[in-house]
Design a protein around this nucleic acid. Sequence first.
DNA 1: CCTGTCTGCCCC
DNA 2: ATTCTGC
DNA 3: GCAGAATGGGCAGACAGG
Length: 466
Amino acid sequence: MRKAFKSFKDFIEICSRIESTSSILKKQEILAGFLKTLSRDEIKPFIMLISGKIFEKEERELGIGYRSVLSVLKRGKIRPLLEEGPISMVDVYKRLVRISEIKGESSIAKKRMMLHGLYNMLSSEEREYLTRIIFGEVRIGASEGLILKSIAEAIKAPLDEVKRAYLMIGDLGETAEIALIGGRNGLKRIKMKVFNPVKPMLATQARDVKEALISAGGRAAVEFKYDGARVQVHVKDEVLRIYSRSLIDLTQSFFDLADELKGKIRAKEAIVDGEVVAFSENGKPLPFQILVRRIKRIRKLPEIAERIPVRIFLFDVLYVDGKTLIDRPYMERIRVLESIANPDILAHRIITSDLKKAEDFYERAIKLGHEGVVVKNLLAPYILGSRERTWLKVKPAETLDLVIVGAEWGHGRRKGWLSDYYLAVYDDERDKLEIVGKTFKGLTDDEFREITRRLLSLKVAEEGNT
DNA sequence: CCTGTCTGCCCC
DNA sequence: ATTCTGC
DNA sequence: GCAGAATGGGCAGACAGG
């Protein structure tokens, strides 16, 4: 069957049809229908454009943002040298890729020039969509979930099969390509593979240890929750790579850790899950803000690495030597993890049904400078890319003593009250108040009246509305 | 060199 | 990361 | 309760321009 090439205009038409449809099922039907008419080279560009991403896992960036678009739009339209036919959907995508490839001196000007050329080929409606694509804000209600459903519908496969494949490869365009070309068999062949990072499982919040322990089944694992960056470590023979939560390769940023880990994971192949934490010389954990200085740093990385040593704490394992473990219960995975990893790179954990012991463990985590704990159901499988209630994080609520240093008269319902408060924190070292923010929430009407009265009695100056 | 501006499926 | 909203 | 969309703060790299 021969398929007609899609113009960018066809793409826009589908976008606006989906956007103006409120029913999710209808959107899905339109999308599935369109997917079926695409030739193989058009699948990936289409998926990327409609989800407003241009790139998925690639280490590439567009380098065009708000400022560049604004400057290009201000230039207005120029007359094209040749009257060209309608631009194809794939061509628009390729041009965006080409823009991303421009680097080095005067690259910004060149990028803007190319963008200008592209805008000039488009109608005003097409331009609007292109702008939305560039900002990653297509927002027509065709997000990840709907696209997966549409792929499933297009090839008449169960949604779970498509989802499973997507979670294993972590790339929507590739998933669509495999599904639409290779069908259900193509999807089934996809397996978890080393150096193919997958989306990590996430935890939901619990109020306190008691609530967490009860909902985790009474007897549960309690692990330290570290204040660092979530990472996935992949090993095969002598090669080791470290990926971030969003599947970015961070091996370079943590080159020292990567080296150290090679001798500490005893498996031919493995994918493990953990947290990287910065430590001070005296062995105290440092806050995330310190760690982040190493992430994606290039300049003076060795010096920074020396100054900010990091440790890793592994708490799960997804794959070992050809075996995918995500469907196995937590306890079994932990046993495997303990059998392949050195004890000094494992997250601190206890397994208990005793609330007192769990709470003591939590207190100890806080005292040692960690964020709190994560309480885990012992039977829970590892659900890729999902926020699950089988993992419950508990951390202390942030509280701060603040002083109201300014207020604005309210509008509408709050007319006559001071309702917008500037808050400051007292800086001991410099003996002065530092404004840290502003709030207008969290008070009842009576409290507003009371605060207005008290603030007026304490007033030192007034200007305009403030 | 240094400094300011823009950008980023950034990290949390 | 958190917060809000619509389903 | 869930998923999606919107939001914030801070940080470093790349480039432009002096």
